[in-house]
Design a protein around this nucleic acid. Structure first.
Length: 813
DNA sequence: AGCACGCCGACT
DNA sequence: GTCGGCGTGCTC
């Protein structure tokens, strides 16, 4: 029997292994097996096919073991992975890597061990060999990494080989069990006392006058009436004794301690609430959705901010669960949307599993298993599309427009929103894309008749949309009314809002204090040593930090170039806004929400709680404040500079600006009262600002679509972006030109570049980009992809080019 | 992705 | 001559 085994590597295909007879009964698609690859390395891979006959071109190895005879991946998933690999030009192994929680992808680690018969005779060892042998007498196993550290060398294979041949050490290869079952210590009566009360009585007699022990036993008897398993902790609490007492009882042979396997997943203990009644608009939307789903597999729910889309989702989820279907609810960056998860938990309690990158390996493995077990609802970030669903009936993609659904690095560079649509088709599940600001490509799919459309145009409870006003910074500057980055208008309104006991949100799309530090005398600018960008000044940590590679250095006190002390901060980030505002409004309670303040596990949730409890008056933040926040008491939203959003060097800049500004505006005035939004700008006449102010989505869309059409951009054309990178600039130049030339031979004008990207060097790698614009025809696209992969192959065969990296990004949204 | 092999320059 | 670094190609 021969099987195709998929390994979590970026090799182009699955490998063929043979199955010894005694393991054959356990083999089926999706089963995890242990195999050897190369000389010694062990991996766990997945059975993805049964091979009809023995291959002849290469030797075949036996699989070593079947990890678990029940599959951890189903056939639909394997098809899904294959499709993603083809579409995004990556290997199935790379998809597998993204799909499986790392606790399910095991690789072995080589360990070196001292031979037991080695008799401490160090005489014919070299100095380095001696160091290793000595280390092994102290620690009995060493990893290769540890060996490297001890001798401080990059390559230690020859050293290890030599030690093996001198019969000092041998190597050991073992699969590391990454996933560990969590257990708690439980207490029960030893076998001799378990059966009846008479036995229990002898137990008490045996204890005699030891009061503490009697109490412990009594506590046990009491607890055992309530539950099957009694943890040591519970027993200590109820009987108010110490661990030593229990240990004594174990020694007497009355108690025994045993481990009980438990789940790491939190159970929801609060009462499950029934949901609020539906508004007429929500009822109407549900009816329309049901109707639309009769015709379309995918439907866009375009509901303005505050229209109550979540309540509609809840209704749909309930219906699907009642039908016995599984539901996937996708959210962008789930860690930032704790509010929604909390709300869903209140309705569905433990029927929900939450899945995202903040969970550790063990937790993710357990969630994976609960989905196989049929858990009805999953709320998760983009990687949850890979969970082992059996009978998916509904997929909701909330905040459909959000670009964090697209994974950029590493491969697979997939869009979870687009793949959710595909997943829906594969399962025969309905897909709902919900948002207040639909992406241009999704709306075009509606217009082209591929998706259905349902709209919600009123806010829940009759609340009005906020009034949006621009403040002309040019004008304020001329009249000298500008205080730092604050216009007098905005300051005045902030004061008034706070005086009324209301809260405000300020949006500035840049973190840190100032994006550059430069010398007034010689023009020197703080540059990152690894990247072609200026380093951002962070006042809070008093350091310069590169936002591309994370490199940090101290803030120079004088100019490193000319020695003068006239260093100036240029530009503004959230820290500076917070700082300036605190000076302008000393009594206000101000907090900041950006990556630097929500880094810790619960940082975000804590900040939200403080804001909810009105411990904060003004929240200053980056894009984060535009996402899923829902506060009743916010009456004012301020955008410090709308201009930076509008002038991004990207064809999606205006779309993103429209979405961000509309979303952040939506945070204002959600109950009783109309909110107010202030947009500070130097360009009051910019069409996008007008469209945001007038809530004119259709106007924005028409203008944007025309531009996209004229300049051959999505959704009318498909893009493939190729990034060539290397530490050596000559190789990058040669490589990118080689690829572009080959592509142009076949695709002509559709190939643009190579060009230097906006940041031309990141993490010491020089970058060049090639862009391919393709008509939306399957054969054209497939041909281009095949050509591209061919060209990449040819490039890597060229002398010196094998180390040049080529990243392919299909649909680089 | 890891690992071995072999080429090549540097140093004994 | 030998050691160590690095590019190249293979892994069922």
């Amino acid at each position: 029997m021969y099987i195709a085994v998929l390994l979590p590597l970026s090799v182009p295909q699955a490998y063929t292994y043979s199955v010894p007879t005694y393991l054959q009964k356990d083999i089926q698609l999706g089963v995890q097996v242990e195999v050897q690859l190369g000389k010694r390395k062990l991996y766990t891979g997945l059975v993805v096919g049964i091979v009809a006959q023995a291959p002849t071109e290469f030797e075949v190895k036996d699989i070593l073991a079947v990890i678990d005879p029940s599959p951890i991946v189903n056939e639909k998933q394997l098809k899904f992975w294959q499709w993603i690999a083809d579409y995004y030009c990556c290997t199935q192994g790379e998809v597998m890597n993204a799909a499986l929680p790392s606790g399910l992808k095991l690789t072995s680690e080589t360990k070196i061990v001292l031979r037991p018969e080695f008799d401490d005779d160090f005489t014919d060892l070299t100095e380095q060999e001696y160091l290793i042998a000595e280390a092994l007498t102290i620690q009995n196993k060493l990893t290769v990494e540890e060996v490297r550290k001890i001798v401080d060398k990059k390559k230690v294979d020859r050293l290890i080989d030599s030690l093996i041949s001198k019969r000092v050490i041998f190597v050991e290869e073992e699969l590391e069990q990454k996933y560990k079952v969590k257990t708690v210590s439980c207490v029960r009566l030893a076998a001799a006392y378990q059966d009846d009360n008479a036995q229990l009585k002898t137990a008490f007699e045996q204890i005699g006058r030891a009061i503490k022990q009697t109490e412990a036993l009594l506590g046990y008897v009491q607890l055992s009436k309530q539950r099957q398993h009694i943890t040591k902790k519970e027993l200590l609490e109820t009987s108010k004794t110490e661990a030593a007492v229990i240990t004594a009882l174990v020694k007497k042979g009355i108690f025994e301690i045993y481990p009980l396997e438990i789940s790491r997943l939190n159970t929801y203990e609060e009462a499950v609430l029934s949901s609020l009644p539906l508004s007429p608009q929500q009822t109407e939307a549900l009816q329309q959705l049901a109707k639309s789903f009769e015709t379309y597999n995918t439907v866009l729910l375009h509901g303005i901010t505050g229209s109550g889309k979540t309540r509609v989702y809840i209704e749909l989820i309930e219906e699907a669960v009642k039908r016995g279907e599984q539901v996937l609810y996708l959210l962008p960056e789930i860690a930032l949307t704790a509010q929604i998860v909390e709300r869903l938990r209140k309705v569905f309690g433990d029927d929900i599993a939450v899945y995202h990158s903040k969970f550790n390996n063990n937790e993710r493995v357990e969630i994976w298993q609960t989905i196989i077990g049929g858990k009805p609802i999953v709320v998760g970030a983009r990687s949850s599309i890979f969970l082992p669903f059996q009978r998916l009936g509904l997929i909701i993609v909330d905040e459909e427009h959000d670009n964090s659904f697209k994974q950029i690095d590493p491969a697979p560079r997939y869009s979870a929103r687009d793949m959710a649509v595909l997943l829906g088709i594969m399962h025969g599940a309905k897909v709902l894309l919900g948002t207040a600001t639909p992406s241009v490509e999704t709306y075009q799919n509606v217009k082209a008749g591929r998706y259905g459309l349902v709209e919600m145009t009123e806010r829940f409870g009759g609340v009005q949309l906020p009034q949006i006003v621009t403040v002309d910074l040019k004008d304020e500057l001329r009249k000298k009314k500008l205080k730092g980055n604050f216009s007098e208008t905005l300051l005045q309104l902030l004061r008034e809002a706070l005086a009324r006991g209301e809260q405000a949100i300020l949006f500035q799309n840049r973190r840190g204090y100032a994006p550059t530090l430069h010398c007034q005398t010689c023009g020197w600018v703080s540059q990152c040593i690894n990247c072609d960008v200026s380093m951002t000044y962070h006042k809070f940590s008093n350091a310069m930090r590169c936002h591309y590679c994370g490199h940090e250095k101290k803030v120079p006190s004088s100019c490193p170039a000319c020695g003068q002390h006239k260093l100036l901060h240029k530009g503004m980030g959230t820290e500076k806004i917070e700082d300036e505002l605190q000076i302008l409004m000393p009594d206000a309670k101000i907090a900041r929400m950006d990556w630097d303040t929500v880094r810790t596990k619960n940082g975000h949730a804590e900040l939200i709680h403080r804001f909810e409890n009105k411990e904060i008056d003004i929240l200053v933040g980056t894009q984060m404040v535009t996402k899923g926040l829902d506060f009743d008491n916010v009456s004012l939203v301020g955008v410090l500079s709308a201009d930076t959003l509008l002038h991004f060097p990207d064809f999606r800049a205006t779309e993103r600006a429209f979405q961000l500004l509309t979303q952040v505006s939506g945070r204002a005035g959600r109950k009783q009262k109309q909110g107010l939004v202030i947009l500070q700008t130097y360009e009051t006449e910019h069409p996008v600002l007008k469209e945001v102010i007038n809530n004119d989505f259709q106007g924005f869309l028409e203008r944007e679509l025309k531009e996209r059409y004229d300049f051959q951009y999505p959704p009318f054309f498909r893009l493939i972006e190729i990034t060539v990178s290397s530490e050596e600039i000559e190789k990058v130049k040669y490589g990118s030109e080689f690829l572009a030339k080959r592509l142009k031979e076949q695709l002509g004008e559709r190939v643009l570049g190579p060009t230097e990207p906006y940041v031309a060097r990141v993490r010491n790698q020089y970058l060049r980009q090639i862009l391919i614009k393709l008509e939306r025809q399957k054969n054209v696209i497939d041909e281009a992809k095949a050509l591209l992969l061919q060209a990449e192959l040819l490039l890597h065969q060229e002398r010196g080019m094998s180390t040049v990296r080529v990243n392919i990004n299909v649909d680089p949204y």
